[in-house]
Design a protein around this nucleic acid. Structure first.
Lengths: 337, 337
DNA sequence: CTGAAAGCGCTAACAG
DNA sequence: CTGTTAGCGCTTTCAG
């Protein structure tokens, strides 16, 4: 591999000039620049990443920590990861993949060895054990999701509360008066992942505001659970006509269960969901839904990180992405019989 | 951050001794080793990755190139990626995530800048444009899947031909005499991804060997396609009692379609699949299947790469993982009426 | 606008 | 078994 001194000699300039021509950190005459570029091309020169990192104390690599746990829709993680990589490349950065499994030690390792310049963490819990570490680490980070206190950290996520509200408001606007939320499995609430609770808050607040009767039902996944949930909902709220589902694997089975109980969607029952668009759109009955904007979250997370790396003093601590509801075939005006 | 000279001073030894204590590349007395380790611990020392890479010309990072295209079951990619990361860590390596989108230029970049020591490529095509590059690159690589000629390259994958055979043999053993293969969408064959064709070969060969009547049907995804496929199969082979499905998204809809046509699984029709175990196991009727061993492929790929990095001269060019068929509820002995 | 030269922090001969 | 030292290839002062 050619090195910078080779390029310099070939172009008849000094190594520093080559470096500056490459980084643009000081003005170079057009003539010189042209010769340097020609030399680079002719020699197929590529700066050595390690040498660069050593001299500049910047690796141009971001760490991305992905969750392993089940219960998270895998395609969403993947979409997110791809969007992080793609955006990082636009800023001339690469992405190192870490698993949650590596834990705090893993974060410390890649940060302290200067393998990465900054970190992105997915699936942050309310009292995430990594939080204290992140505050201490001398590298910037962005978290997907909100812990109990985001003081001094940078977080981004869909505004789940607003998402819950948007669903209720859509149903209220269609004349529905009795609504229910079918939520994530109880373990999700126990694990204290903030977003599930935020949906409940938004759902309840909007229902109250509009004077709707409402109830909340955490639910396991699986077709059996779906049937049981559907039965219970109708028993407890016979006048139920609007349902919000925040539980990906349960969405289709639940609709099936309702239909088997003789309710037609959306004729008798309107269903909205908070889930990835692809899932809502490809259901047997396409479901009106608030999208989980994984690609956008990924892009924005990288952008936030880049601002922090650039020394921007006023990067917002929290970024809540406004929900966008897409109407599909599963919701309709309430039938007044 | 403390550096190696700090540790050396603190332990009363020379920097090289610290380095050797860390790498084990030359014998160190127990006493010295103890003092070095103590110093490291007290100072919280971490070797600088860039400096290391520069001095040793080893970054201890592997590149993993993941496909973006649709038509590949996303959870499989994710499982594979996680297994690569986990195994790489066991060998003290990290993993840089690249998308297929970056193409050859991306490979060249991470290899030539010495960002990575070696590469793992997923979703290799028969005439993959990256092949010539890989042969030229001075870094070892392992590919998941087989191109037309794997001469001089290292490839690993499930033995799809044997998988096709295993399915047919299982059906034949249960007394079935007329079988069909429902394959991947035509585009997959056009794209010349080897594995789809290998399944066909194995399926056909085994059927011929056992004297079974057989046919092959490439199929699009989607419930509509499933219904059409089911209808066509039965029309063309009214005596059909055994089906092999090599098309993840079609598996469940196809079974549904058959049942709606009045055939019961496995009473009237036995179904086997080549797909991820989780998918086969969680279907409404759990499906007898040959697993797509993504985790094992990931682990083995890393192990092969490590051998190549270690200079092992006889790393096998091709590794075919033997299929393992798991019996589930979707296959049964043919009913002789 | 350009050059010279001093490191960045580590590894790996070489020397003992 | 341990120490000394010369780089690895680049960036970035400092000087002009």
């Amino acid at each position: 591999m050619a090195k910078i001194t080779d390029v310099a000699r070939h172009a008849g300039v000094s190594p520093s000039t080559v470096s500056y021509a490459l980084s643009g950190k000081r003005p170079i005459s057009d003539e010189t620049k042209r010769r340097v570029e020609a030399a680079i091309r002719e020699l197929g020169y590529r700066p050595h990443a390690g040498a660069r990192a050593l001299a500049s104390s910047k690796s141009n690599v971001l760490a991305l920590v992905v969750p392993l746990r089940t219960g998270i829709h895998v395609p969403v993680i993947m979409q997110f990861a791809v969007s992080v990589v793609t955006t990082a490349r636009r800023y001339d950065h690469d992405v190192l993949l870490l698993t949650q499994e590596e834990g705090e030690e893993g974060l410390r390792r890649v940060a302290d060895t200067a393998l990465v310049d900054a970190l992105i963490l997915m699936d942050v819990q309310l009292h995430d054990p990594r939080l204290p570490l992140l505050r201490v680490l001398e590298r910037p980070s962005v978290m997907i999701g909100f812990p109990a206190s985001s003081e001094g950290l940078t977080c981004i996520d869909l505004d789940f509360k607003a998402a819950g509200e948007a669903c209720v408001e859509h149903l209220a606007g269609l004349g529905h008066r009795v609504v229910a939320l079918v939520g994530s499995p109880p373990e999700v609430y126990v694990r204290q992942t903030a977003f599930a609770q935020r949906v409940v808050e938004g759902f309840t607040a909007a229902a109250d505001r509009h004077g709707l009767a409402s109830s909340v039902h955490p639910c396991e996944a699986g077709p059996g659970a779906a049937r049981r949930a559907a039965g219970r909902l109708l028993r407890e709220q016979p006048a139920l006509t609007g349902v919000v589902v925040h539980n990906e694997p349960l969405l289709e089975p639940l609709i099936d269960a309702f239909e088997q109980l003789g309710l037609r969607v959306p004729g008798d029952l309107s269903v909205t969901a908070i889930c990835p668009d692809e899932l809502a759109g490809s259901a047997r009955v396409p479901v009106t839904s608030v999208a989980l904007p994984s690609a956008e979250v990924g892009t924005r997370a990288v952008e936030l990180l880049m601002r922090k790396l650039g020394g921007d003093p006023d990067v917002p601590e929290s970024t809540l992405l406004a929900p966008r509801l897409t109407e599909r075939a599963s919701t309709a005006r309430r039938q007044v019989s």
